[in-house]
Amino acid sequence: MIATLRTVFMGTLFASLAAGCGSSVVLDPPTIPKPLMTTIPLSVGLRMPENFESFVHEEEVLGREQWTIDLGRSNAVFFAQLFGYMFETVTVVSEADDPSIMPFDALIEPSIDEFEFSVPNQTKTNDFAVWIRYRIKVYDRDGKLVVNWPVSAYGKSQTTVMGGKDALQRAAILAMRDAAALMIIKFDEPTLISSISSDPTSTAVPVEEGGEATAQATTLGGDNDE
């Protein structure tokens, strides 16, 4: 009996110590305020990748501290909300849907290229920082890729009495909000979405699939893609 109790106690102790070496952060879907902007008069379809419903990033910091950041549905909720504010009509379509038979002016496909973060141990500050590089692809009504735009976003938050998890969560939300600000300001540039007019006879210049250094992407991403 004593041996069993000892085993249970030691097991619990080791489990606690092991848990102490790792941190897990779960992000609740953020909300962004209604932006002060003129709505872009386009009807768009929004096709989100599978991992926008359950994005998990795991990383071992300095070879000893395991961090798991679970963004969950944050990206799906965030982009639906953002584009809902930006465009006249937004319809979320699934991977199975055929957008060519739907009456959209354009189809937008966001994705995550990279996710990185830093913790105070690495930077010798009190700051948690998060970098997210999204990629926004826009297809015209003929299914041609007309925009291929990398959007780099950054958020930083200081450690509080609530602890590091809270700060990292806030840094991630600030990074998403940073991406939203950039997209709102730059999406309606002449070389981007405005080139896709609601007029069905207009044509946008297609860019090559996978070709990031396109004239359109360069013009847009140039100064602001930090």
Binding site: I32, K34, L174, R177, A181, L182, N224
Partner: peptide, 12 residues
Amino acid sequence: VDSLFPWFEPRT
């Protein structure tokens, strides 16, 4: 900042 989104964000 929220009431003036996105014009007083750290980037903008």
